[in-house]
Design a protein around this nucleic acid. Structure first.
Lengths: 249, 249
DNA sequence: TATTTTTTTGTAATATTAACCCAAAGACAG
DNA sequence: CTGTCTTTGGGTTAATATTACAAAAAAATA
């Protein structure tokens, strides 16, 4: 079955199952070896890259819709999700599928709800959908060079901007790091998310003062040089700060 | 024309003009005499209070839709707006209009995009719509005692929570205060938004260090006691910080 | 009308606390 | 031993909290 037939068949089904005019798109952040990565797909149709996304079932919660879509793309359930912006320009997907009939599901005007997700890189098995030639992790630094569809580039940038702002109000790391991790690894995560270096001594002290770290009685052996201490998060404290926020002012 | 006829007539028109299943609701914040107020309407139908809101035209930007709605409710154009959350629970408006036919526009499942607006209290002339008995400013402290429809109370709380978080990354006041204002007034605004007292000396120094204030060569006469200096915002600096954000970390 | 009282503003001086930077000590591989 | 990386501690600077006080203006008093 060729791409055209596929997408026209899917169209009819989508009108049945989903709310019209509403889509969700997700910027999935992963962290591996000190670099920030996002999950992208590449369309068969026009070879453009795009974010994992989908539509909201007629009786489905929007958050659940995103979780369903991400489970299909990554094999992971229970993903940490937050809405970060809505993209409601009526022209945003106007040029898409120009050579298809106007009644095609995909040619509707879509208001897209933007989510970001934080996932453990190692748990993800990227799975392309039927209309994509690939689904893979892309280093954030390489995103600038890609041909990205519609407004998905600005979605990515906005997601990171909002994530950075929330970084000063909420703890982060539980969803991006393995269960046991070292302080240099946590610092590396913050540095890549913020895009700048932080002072080591201050970072250690700050993290310890927040009170979300539990030092384990073991160390990460095997690497060259001194073995760093392993930590895990104190989930009680972590979650309560996620709720109440760190106070500024 | 009675309420029932009215709403059924409006229904047909809404199906023509608006995107289905999508609504916008706005928490309009105003500031007067040291107290925080929000704009609320009271439904004729069931006497419940609700936020000014509406629907998105089939070829209208979501932000524009909110501006249109707020212009109708307040007479004000060029309102400062930010999206703060999406409310997508499929049950959120389930009980509404139980005694009306299922085909009624208002009985659809709606995913609502939540905005907050910051407006100059004195510029607003509240205007009820055809289905409401009143549209008025309500002191934020009195909101808790009101009978509020659907999830609009949690919308209000969430709006204030997000606004407080953004307060440490963005300047505020230009949209809520008169053009010329005093430092005690600005401090009062921050205190009511944050819900706590701030130290005078530190607040003064902090504000002056940010560099968004211009001290005028005049004072607020007429009140009792010492006449405070008048200030206005340095809009160039103000807007650039709105864009780039105040840096934490 | 002149003077005092009261209250708030604007700012300075000081103490306390937190953030920041640097470098020494500890640990481990080679 | 040596080099490199992790931790920790000390010293410094910046931010915040506390206190104090003079200046200003309306209101009260004489």
């Amino acid at each position: 079955m060729d791409f055209r037939t596929q997408i026209i068949n899917a169209s009819a089904e989508s009108y049945e199952k989903f709310l019209p005019h509403i889509s969700v798109d997700t910027v999935v952040f992963g962290f591996d070896q000190g670099s920030l990565r996002i999950l992208l797909l590449k369309m068969n149709y026009n070879k453009e890259w795009f974010l994992p996304g989908g539509y909201v079932g007629k009786n489905e919660d929007t958050d659940e819709a995103v979780k369903r879509v991400l489970h299909e793309r990554s094999g992971v359930k229970d993903i940490f999700l937050e809405e970060f912006a809505v993209f409601g320009n009526p022209q945003r997907n106007q040029q898409s599928f120009a050579d298809y009939p106007d009644t095609l599901w995909n040619k509707q005007r879509f208001i897209s709800i933007g989510y970001y997700a934080l996932v453990n890189y190692t748990h993800v098995v990227p799975q392309p959908d039927a209309l994509s030639e690939t689904c893979q992790w892309v280093d954030f630094k390489e995103v600038a060079a890609l041909n990205i569809t519609m407004d998905h580039r600005s979605m990515i940038n906005k997601a990171l901007q909002v994530l950075r702002e929330r970084l000063s109000h909420k703890p982060i790391g539980y969803n991006l790091l393995p269960e046991k991790f070292t302080l240099p690894e946590l610092q590396g995560l913050y540095e890549t998310l913020l895009g700048k270096k932080l002072n080591r001594g201050n970072f250690y002290r700050k993290m310890k003062n927040i009170g979300i770290l539990l030092k384990l009685d073991e160390q990460r052996k095997g690497g060259a040089h001194k073995a760093p201490d392993l930590y895990r998060f104190n989930l009680d404290v972590y979650n309560s700060i996620l709720q109440e926020g760190l106070n500024t002012w």
